[in-house]
Design a protein around this nucleic acid. Structure first.
Lengths: 347, 347
DNA sequence: ACCGGACCTGGAAGCGGTTCCAAGTCCGAC
DNA sequence: GTCGGACTTGGAACCGCTTCCAGGTCCGGT
């Protein structure tokens, strides 16, 4: 069936609709795009004709003529990770409700990334670009801006463009404070480095850890902080490293649930019990967290995508767009965190 | 920055490139699209001019003129589930390597679905449509075919259009046969019903279960088969139901890993040990399976998306496309399956 | 030296809409 | 009974690129 181009008598054009409705193409066009200054009766007749003919306007033609594409480009670093899929879902829901087409660009590796920002394939292809969990550096941002279309970010900040995200520092504090409140004093952190996500921005989730400990008057032991690339395996490895310390932590704060789950796996394999021997907390409220009874700090992911979608649509309509929306996170206490076995202070 | 339309002196057009290269637009067009019958020197000059000017062709204009859009529409029922994200990743990798734009349509609910097949928004917007884990009934298929573009399916079959998928029956047998080989005779099945996935097709994974038991001479107890909607919670619930039987199963076969993980959760909560008390096996080899040490039947997901992409590209080039590619699955034995505690036969 | 043909290249006609501009209609107001 | 203006409508000029068609060049063959 490939190569077979269309129905019996070729596609239906605006001219066909106009003829059937007994008006000029100009009027038909106005009627269909809900312009003012079209008699109600005429508008109805045109719509009726269009319906009967199953008319679908050629986006190419109307785009060429109007200069608008009706498309929104979405840039993501990953597709198979939960956060991105969920956020994308929220975004797509909004956009398709507004009849915008979604153009998907996945920039997986540095190569794809460079090509994208060099060739700017999105140029002329979309009316706006959404960066979904995709941080860019200044140079990339500048190049992107040269496309001349609206830019919206979700999950990160991009210059002063409208963006929606959580307060990473606050989320980190919610997690670490929870551990502190439980009485933990020797708290490890599994930090994840994901250059795709935030090349420019410093790790707010890490800063929150240091700040929380400082505020609680707990000294920071650099040995308790382990950096790994994002992945459950990374979490497993990091946990192994922490367990190798002469004075291992009684609780561990991981930057994400997936990493936390990896850490829990290592603990189990080692024969240690969670939370009896070690408490573990993550961030995200990944579905996996509920399944594995992991305490975490929940963030509304779908909602962030949806909000980004709303921002894009508002921007496209010329409406004012809030520059910075922060969605709230909240602590979800499950079965992976508990007070330390022996109160801190005793060893 | 919304509404700000482009750089200093407006976008660069083909005419600008042609002028700079000292040729006509016609020749410039031919040179850039690698047509034959263009002198090598001319071609080079044009490319050079295009590079200097950062020329990007207007897809609207070229689409309008050529009748091709350079876009491929992808239809998915979900985005936040692993399978879909992973398959999409494979697909996108192939398509973007061929400079095709990907248009994403998520048809989440019945409403979106109806609208999609009624209005056919994909009409004129793409050169081909890929159904990713998205089954359609005959009526929908017919409407889709009326768009007149190539159709490719991944994860399902759609009429006689090119498709790539696993052999669900074989996968199911690999799982159930594994349990049988371990000595289990009382084997439960957690069946998932997902209308989005396969409205037309019968459950091959279920048929495989019945066939495997029959081949092994094991009678089928209808009470051992539980149907739930796809989700870990569904799996948890189903497991609860199975445990409520007077003679519960010694092993459980779930249609997917996510469901299996839910089942394992219930077992743990009930105080039963896996695999000592009950063995559990799923299908997919979801990353989660490795993390939770779940035995499963692995399927190459990324690869299915990639193959679908290759099929689309071949079809677009007019090359012959295989009608039905079946990718192999293989049993992955992990720690969730073991021989039954008391050999079958004794009760 | 002449001729046919292979190669290159330019001219120009669309592709299918949108929108500016102007013309026409019809009404109420002066 | 005119005249001005608001509302409708049609004509026509693009939007930027592709491609058919034809003209021009240059080469080898006879």
């Amino acid at each position: 069936m490939f190569g077979h181009t269309g129905g019996v008598s070729g596609p239906v054009n605006l001219a066909d609709v106009a003829r059937r409705a007994g008006v000029s193409p100009a009027t038909a066009s106005r009627a269909l795009s809900d312009h003012p200054h079209v008699a109600e009766a005429t508008r109805a007749r045109v719509w009726e004709a269009a319906r009967e003919l199953e008319y679908v306007a050629s986006p190419e033609a109307s785009g060429l003529a109007s200069g608008r594409t009706g498309r929104v480009a979405v840039v993501v670093p990953h597709l198979s990770r939960w956060w991105f899929g969920a956020a994308l879902e929220g975004l797509v829901a909004q956009l398709s409700a507004a009849a915008k087409d979604v153009l998907l660009y996945r920039l997986g590796d540095a190569d794809a990334r460079r090509t994208f920002f060099t060739d700017l394939p999105a140029r002329r292809r979309a009316d706006a670009v959404v960066l979904l969990g995709f941080g860019v550096d200044d140079e990339e941002r500048e190049r992107l801006e040269r496309i001349g279309v609206g830019i919206v970010a979700a999950g990160t900040r991009v210059g002063s463009h409208p963006s929606v995200s959580i307060d990473d520092h606050a989320a980190g504090r919610q997690a670490v404070d929870h551990l502190l409140n439980l009485g933990h004093r020797r708290i490890g952190m599994i930090e994840t480095t994901d250059p795709e996500l935030d090349p420019g921005q410093p790790g707010h989730r890490s800063a929150a850890y240091r700040r929380a400990l400082a505020d609680a008057g707990v000294g920071i032991d650099p040995a308790l902080v382990v950096s790994v690339p994002w992945s459950p395996e990374g979490g497993a490895r990091a946990m192994g490293q922490l367990l190798g310390l002469s004075d291992p932590p009684t609780a561990v704060y991981a930057h994400s649930d997936e990493v936390a789950v990896g850490a829990v796996g290592t603990l189990r394999r080692t024969g240690l019990q969670v939370p009896r021997d070690v408490s573990v907390i993550g961030i995200d409220d990944h579905p996996l967290a509920a399944l594995t009874d992991l305490s975490t700090v929940a963030q509304p992911v779908f909602e962030q995508g949806a909000e980004a979608g709303r921002m894009v649509l508002a921007g496209l309509l010329g409406e004012p767009v809030e520059e910075r929306v922060t969605v709230p996170t909240h602590l979800v206490i499950r079965g992976s965190t508990a007070p330390p076995r022996s109160p801190s202070g005793e060893s």
